[in-house]
């Protein structure tokens, strides 16, 4: 911390006087103060309010009752659906995203395809919310282009039970930002596989399969799992896309909170806070696991 103060600054210290903290250090703290104030006001404060209210009994005082009431059909159903969709899109998105990263990194596609893929991934991972929902409505909605195409071929998607406003439909839509996110996060790890490892394995008699089985996949596994957990959180906290697609009426944890904001649909404000805090806890745990795994993988791929 004192790196700047190494030069003798006798002016700051009067003989026998008390040492004052060096001026530059106060300046540094002033430099980071706005950051902490802002984070406190707009990130931490609002969350703490929810945490506080979720633990507050009706007439004041501490209670865990709100968390006990989480075991409630509406809440359980929306959490279950959120977790189902998040798990499915995390695993599918993770696998597909990894395959794409493999294809553009070492699979043998030429350089321009890689650039296109990374740029597009940057766009698509941010292309969520209303425009994404619209795009899928125009593709696979009741009058969407693909639906129409199937009809032309004599097959009615919606008669066969398909609907975009379902678990399956939402999964299909979420994958549109999940896969690119996977590509962006996992690509550096795939690039980190050294050619020498492959050659060393071959040199020691391993087949290509054995190389992937014993070296490449184990080396990548922390990154792959970690990023899948990141995808899980990404999907679990997603609100805008589902809201735009279903008008906010689907059974989903984020949508339930949205409804609770607009009007107390749970007929219990305290329970609403507990539902919100439950999400924060799940997200926090997944981000924690993600960073632990990411650190491990960095150590290997350095």
């Amino acid at each position: 911390m004192g790196t700047v103060n190494t030069k003798p600054k006798s002016t700051n210290e009067t003989e026998g006087g008390a040492k004052r903290p060096p001026r530059s250090q106060i300046g540094s703290w002033l430099g980071v103060l706005p950051f902490f104030v802002f984070s406190g006001l707009f990130l931490i404060g609002p969350t703490l309010v929810l945490a506080y209210r979720s633990l507050e009994a009706d007439g004041g005082g501490f209670t865990l009752g709100n968390y006990r009431q989480l075991v409630n059909e509406t809440v359980i159903n929306s959490y279950a659906m959120s977790i189902r969709i998040s798990l499915t899109t995390a695993i599918l998105g993770g696998i597909i995203g990894f395959l794409i990263a493999w294809a553009v990194s070492i699979g043998g596609l030429s350089r321009p395809f890689r650039t296109i893929t990374t740029t597009f991934s940057g766009v698509a991972s941010n292309f969520a919310g209303v425009p994404l929902a619209s795009a899928f409505v125009f593709t696979l909605g009741r009058v969407g282009a693909i639906t129409a195409l199937f009809k032309l071929l004599g097959f009615d998607l919606y008669d066969s039970g398909f609907t975009l406003y379902s678990f399956f439909g939402l999964t299909l839509v979420y994958l549109y930002f999940q896969i690119p996110l996977m590509v962006l996060v996992i690509l550096p790890a795939v690039d980190g596989l050294k050619r020498d490892w492959r050659e060393a394995a071959e040199n020691l008699g391993a087949t290509s399969f054995q190389y992937w089985r014993y070296v490449a996949l184990p080396v990548l596994m922390p990154s792959i799992l970690g990023t899948m957990i990141l995808l899980f959180g990404n999907s679990f906290g997603a609100h805008a896309t589902a809201y735009a697609l279903t008008g906010g009426l689907f059974t989903l944890a984020t949508l339930l909170i949205g409804q609770q904001i607009s009007g107390d649909v749970l007929n219990n404000p305290g329970l609403g806070y507990a539902v919100a805090m439950g999400m924060v806890i799940i997200m926090g745990v997944s981000i924690l696991i993600y960073s632990v795994l990411q650190r491990r993988s960095e150590r290997w791929l350095r």
Binding site: E202, L204, R299
Partner: peptide, 20 residues
Amino acid sequence: SPPNKRNVGMIFQSYALFPN
């Protein structure tokens, strides 16, 4: 013959030890 059939040991400049 492919590298994995030659039984020739190689020491790489980067050591290429498997990190896992």
